[in-house]
């Protein structure tokens, strides 16, 4: 396959402030995709705030949307297309339908395991049956809970989550870490107990540096439950992207934000970060395809974002 995609906005670019928000370097303005048979393709599939929505929604404006059995079929089909696929969730797996009230999240976790989720981060509602309630469902998970800014040292979850996770697909080393929202004021203290919330920007800065520079990851993905963006100065995916470096993609949750396409945010070093979120209740699956080439380090032009 050889494809040459000119930047969509290269003609409109003259008009726009959006110009430099989209393309990090001047050279990338003229960058075209150079996808060849040698290119490696990593697909990231992601969900967030599924909130125990196992069956399609009945009634209301979202009637007929969602459903785990359909999501599973879709994921399987995409995996057939590209085995180098990651399936990730950004938290708030629990709470929202009687499935949670009746089974305490057991079915949600079992189904995620069956669908082949690779990792998930933890949302505030995942504490709804207490930290013990979350712990109780862990044996049903054959995927990892990745969360970097909750210190569980004095809790039952100590040692049961990962602060980061590295997966190598087709020779591409992918580093992931997870960020949770401040629990104080959002979750009853009796539910999160001695969980300590650590500053997400500090932690993200560290984790991204460790993954990219120390561990040599080719891609760094942040799974976040901070929320997409706020009017206040509360840390969000957008503010996190701008305040850090070494992160390639932030997939998020919490604010139930339905983005039609990811936003590109310039990071601390003026590089693009792909920031995305797919609403809630399993109504959408986000699919990010990343094409990577092995090139001379001194001859690497920008990246084309077909968003």
């Amino acid at each position: 396959m050889k494809r040459s995609t000119f930047l969509k906005s290269s003609t409109a670019a003259v008009a726009g402030m959006g110009l430099f928000a989209n393309f990090s370097t001047a050279t990338s303005l003229y960058k075209v995709s150079s996808i060849t048979e040698k290119s490696k393709k990593i697909t990231i599939l992601h969900t967030n705030d599924t909130h125990s929505h196992i069956e399609p929604i009945v009634g209301g404006r979202n009637d007929g949307r969602g459903g785990v059995a359909r999501r599973a079929a879709l994921v399987n089909q995409i995996r057939k297309e590209n085995p180098n696929t990651l399936l990730l969730d950004c938290g708030d797996i629990f709470q929202g339908t009687p499935y949670f009230n009746f089974y305490g999240g057991e079915l949600e976790i079992k189904l995620m395991s069956m669908m082949g989720y690779d990792a998930a981060t933890i949302g505030n509602h995942d504490f709804d049956n207490g930290i013990d309630g979350l712990y109780k469902q862990l044996p049903h998970a054959n995927f990892d809970f990745v969360i970097s800014n909750y210190d569980f040292k004095n809790t039952i979850l100590d040692g049961h989550t990962l602060e980061n996770k590295i997966v190598t697909l087709d020779g591409i080393k992918i580093g992931m870490f997870g960020l949770g929202i401040e629990l104080d004021g959002l979750v009853n203290k009796t539910n999160y107990k001695e969980t300590k919330y650590l500053d997400p920007i500090d932690i993200a800065t560290d984790q991204a540096r460790i993954l990219k520079e120390e561990k040599g990851c080719d891609l760094v993905i942040c799974m976040s439950h901070l929320g997409y963006s706020y009017k206040s100065d509360t840390v969000s995916d957008v503010s996190l992207a701008a305040a850090t470096s070494n992160i390639d993609v932030i997939i998020g949750g919490h604010t139930h934000t339905f983005l039609e396409k990811p936003e590109l945010i310039l990071n601390k070093e003026g590089k693009n970060v792909v920031v995305n979120q797919v609403g809630c209740y399993g109504m959408y699956l986000g699919r990010i395809d990343l094409y990577l080439n092995e090139t001379d380090i001194n001859n690497q032009a920008g990246t084309v974002y077909n968003l």
Binding site: R65, A72, D248, M283, R287, T303
Partner: peptide, 25 residues
């Protein structure tokens, strides 16, 4: 800021709605 010679060339995105047009597993 990269210590590898793997370069991210292109990013594509597709948001897929889960609805009754999809088969179920």
């Amino acid at each position: 800021n990269s210590n590898t010679n793997v370069h991210l060339d292109t990013v594509d995105y597709k948001r897929i709605e889960i609805n009754d047009s999809l088969a179920q597993e």
